[in-house]
Design a binder for these strands. Structure first.
Length: 492
RNA sequence: CGGGGCGUGGCGCAGUCCGGCAGCGCAUCUGCUUUGGGAGCAGAGGGCCACAGGUUCGAAUCCUGUCGCCCCGACCA
């Protein structure tokens, strides 16, 4: 196991090293697509379970729409095509043909199997879903339609990075249809709030919510909202989006409903999603130079017991006690893994579970059993303390709660320390030539001005925070009047 | 897609300039001794040197092309 590069040395190398060290994912032979390994997939399962329950609690139901989309569908919504055209994979043939190339067996597309209409591998599913919605929605009685799907999508990316940007990724996409503009807007904001709640309560990752500027809007949306988190290198990461689609897709796919007054109206729509990118966010938000750090609520294995023994008698004593403890902890920590591998020494196991981010490690040796205690090591602060075996479930439960809370507080504190309220362009360029971070500045709202800021500094408007109060001011860049401060940062 | 760097057992690398038996460390396997922070000794296995052409008596090494990875730009969740 090679050492993990220090964050201070090379942040992006560190990120990749943590993924390798914790065995989360690796590159596959196809550029930009990744293999998610069991430890990494466990995180995704944990994210799925929590969000899926929440979506259902709010009345959404799961469905599945196909991977392949007729080419013509994508062309129906003008903005939408333009946004995705440059990153679509296209299926053109349905068969391979055996050939020989340089005397070796090979295969190539059978020219006779060229498709009449080429198919697009979904970059997102609005089009194929709205084509179905037309058939499902007849009257106001059919509304709202609240659908979610867990799926993979593909966007042909130029430059990829494990979890943060891969050509194929896993996500959930919610698609809803409503009778009124207000209902659609309410749904958009409700789901944005679900994402905020999830990021903060489960991932222990504080986020800023708000609408994106027009140039960062989802292709085909009237308004896009995002949650933005700060990573440990002070850059921002968009961790989830919720779109108010207005009637754009309803019009493109001719989805009308009959009202109680017997008129025909186009329906109003939303879509919202989070992806495996959240795993990247999680890594960059909490992990340290020793490896992955997982918030307890996300960790499938919250506690691991490392037994320590020499002789067979000690082994029996310690393992029996470990099993007892594991059983006792089930109600507060779920399945507790006992690492009884004989071939590895305790110190090696400590290192491994640290790399993999297990929140709590219990070290249990004959001395501990004799004293009716165990050594509890907490991953987030790397502290070790002896704790009594009496009331251990309570102790562990409290420790897990404390870790969850402290991870959030540490992340929040880091964000606050690296967030600035700026008034002048000079302050702005000074900040982003140095350590960077979040800044709240006035902006005129004009796209050209926004672009000029990015061209010069790589800094973009992440969103217009919902918590941002109205306030008279002048644009940080061009000096024109502004009524609100917006959130600036360099972004992933 | 442009600029730069790099592809050699699972991982990290040396060897490439100047062609001549494919090496080192970690990991793996076996045995013995060990076990409270990444154990020691002895032995063993594992590589089409990214891929494809070419030059040569002979290529990891030289030439041409392709692919992949990392970094920096343009594009994006």
């Amino acid at each position: 196991m090679a050492d993990i590069t220090k964050r201070s040395e090379d942040y992006s190398r560190w990120y990749l090293d943590v993924i390798q060290a914790a065995e989360l994912a690796e590159n596959s032979p196809v550029r930009g697509s990744m293999v998610i390994r069991p430890t990494g997939f466990a995180i995704w399962e944990s994210i799925q379970r929590t969000l899926d329950d929440k979506f259902k609690e709010l009345g959404h139901v799961n469905a599945y729409f196909p991977l392949l989309i007729p080419k013509s569908f994508l062309a129906k919504e003008a903005q939408h095509v333009e946004g995705f055209a440059k990153e679509c994979a296209i299926v053109t043939h349905s068969r391979l043909k055996s050939t020989t190339k340089d005397g070796k067996p090979s295969v190539e597309p059978d020219p006779d199997s060229k498709l009449e209409e080429e198919l697009i591998i979904r970059p997102t599913s609005e089009t194929i879903i709205w084509d179905q919605f037309r058939k499902w929605i007849m009257s106001y009685r059919d509304l709202p339609v609240l659908i979610n799907q867990w799926a993979n999508v593909m966007r042909w990316e130029m430059r990829t990075r494990l979890f943060l940007r891969t050509s194929e990724f896993l996500w959930q996409e919610g698609h809803t249809a409503h009778a009124t503009a207000k209902e659609a807007r309410d749904e958009t904001l409700q789901m944005l709030e679900v994402y905020r709640w999830f990021a903060e309560e489960y991932l222990a990752m504080p986020v800023i919510t708000g609408p994106k500027t027009p140039r960062e809007r989802f292709a085909g949306a009237v308004e896009t909202f995002s949650i933005e988190a700060m990573m440990q290198d002070n850059k921002a990461l968009q961790a989830g989006t919720s779109h108010d689609l207005g009637q754009n897709f309803a019009k493109a796919f001719d989805v009308k409903y009959q009202t109680a007054e017997e008129t025909q109206e186009y329906v109003w729509a939303t879509s919202w999603g989070v992806s495996t990118r959240l795993i990247g966010a999680l890594i960059m938000c909490h992990s340290d130079d020793k490896g992955l750090v997982l918030p307890p609520k996300v960790a499938q294995r919250k506690v691991v017991i490392v037994p320590i023994y020499r002789s067979d008698e000690e082994k029996e004593l310690v393992l029996n006690k470990a099993k007892e403890i594991a059983e006792q902890l089930k109600p507060v920590a779920g399945f507790v893994h006992i690492d009884d591998r004989d071939k590895m020494r305790p110190g090696w196991k400590f290192g491994e579970w640290e790399r993999k981010g297990i929140p709590i490690r219990l070290e249990l040796g004959p001395r501990d059993v004799g004293n009716n205690e165990t050594v509890m090591a907490t991953r987030h602060d790397c502290n070790k303390t002896s704790v009594s075996l009496d009331g251990l479930a309570e102790t562990i439960s409290e420790a897990l709660d404390r870790m969850q809370k402290e991870l959030f507080e540490t992340a929040l504190k880091r964000r606050e320390e690296n967030t600035h309220i700026l008034e002048t362009w000079e302050e702005f360029t000074t900040l982003y030539n140095a350590e960077g971070g979040f800044s709240y500045c006035h902006h005129c709202g004009e796209t050209e001005c926004e672009e000029s800021i990015q061209d010069e500094t790589k800094v973009t408007i992440r969103n217009i925070p919902l918590h941002s109060e109205d306030e008279e001011g002048s644009c940080i860049r061009c000096g024109k009047p502004s009524k609100k401060r917006v959130l600036f940062a360099q972004a992933y």
